[in-house]
Amino acid sequence: MEEFWNDAYENARIYKDKTKKYHDQMILKREFMPGQQVLLFNSRLRLFPGKLKSRWSGPFVITKVSPFGSVELRNNDGSLFQVNGQRLKHYFGEIHKKVETMYLQDSN
């Protein structure tokens, strides 16, 4: 019976190691620099979320980056606050697509 327990324990350890390795490969390393614009993930949007409401707010400007993942952001009104860097993603600005309008005429 003890042999089965040892085999099960070893198999569970191997499975956990493989899943951890896969998970660590999927993590994206993001590097932020002061002056960049970022979006902040709002994880507390649970009360009345709405289906199509975005959970990302911003853009905010980075003022300081600490070596252990903490990032200091500046709001539009100039106030500063700190957040975890894992809650941020890069903001690339508004994308304006050129829309061309074509009118069709009736050929009677």
Rank of each mutant, 00 (worst) to 15 (best):
G35A: 08
K89T: 08
F48N: 14
M33W: 04
Q37D: 04
G58D: 01
H96A: 13
D7R: 13
L80G: 01
V61G: 00
R13E: 14
N84S: 15
Y91W: 13
L40S: 01
A8G: 05
R46W: 05
L45M: 13
S57M: 09
E94A: 08
T19C: 02
S66T: 01
E72N: 05
K89C: 12
K29W: 07
Q105P: 03
V65C: 14
Q25A: 13
S43E: 09
V83Q: 00
V38K: 04
I27G: 01
E3Q: 15
I27P: 02
F92G: 05
R46Y: 07
D106K: 12
T63S: 07
K51P: 04
S57T: 13
Q36N: 10
L104P: 02
L47R: 05
K29Y: 03
Q37F: 14
H90E: 14
M26D: 09
T19N: 05
I14E: 14
G69M: 07
V71Q: 00
V71C: 01
W56H: 02
Q25P: 00
P67T: 05
K29D: 12
S70L: 14
A8Q: 09
V61C: 09
Y15P: 00
I14W: 10
L88G: 04
F41D: 02
K29G: 08
Y103K: 11
H96F: 10
V61K: 12
P59N: 11
P34M: 08
K53F: 02
H96P: 00
F32E: 01
F68G: 05
G50Y: 10
K16R: 13
Y9C: 11
Y22W: 05
F48S: 12
G35W: 03
Y9N: 12
R46C: 06
S107G: 13
Y9R: 11
S107H: 15
S43W: 08
L40V: 03
E31C: 06
K64T: 12
E2F: 05
Q105L: 08
V38D: 02
Y91R: 12
T19Q: 15
D106H: 10
S43H: 13
E100R: 15
R55S: 13
R74Q: 15
Q105M: 10
Q82E: 10
G85M: 04
D17A: 14
W56P: 01
P34N: 03
G69I: 02
M102D: 04
G58S: 01
F32L: 12
W5A: 13
S107M: 07
G93S: 10
R44M: 04
Y15L: 08
Y103C: 06
I95P: 00
T63R: 09
R44S: 11
A12R: 14
R55I: 06
F68P: 00
E3K: 15
G69V: 07
D77K: 12
H90T: 11
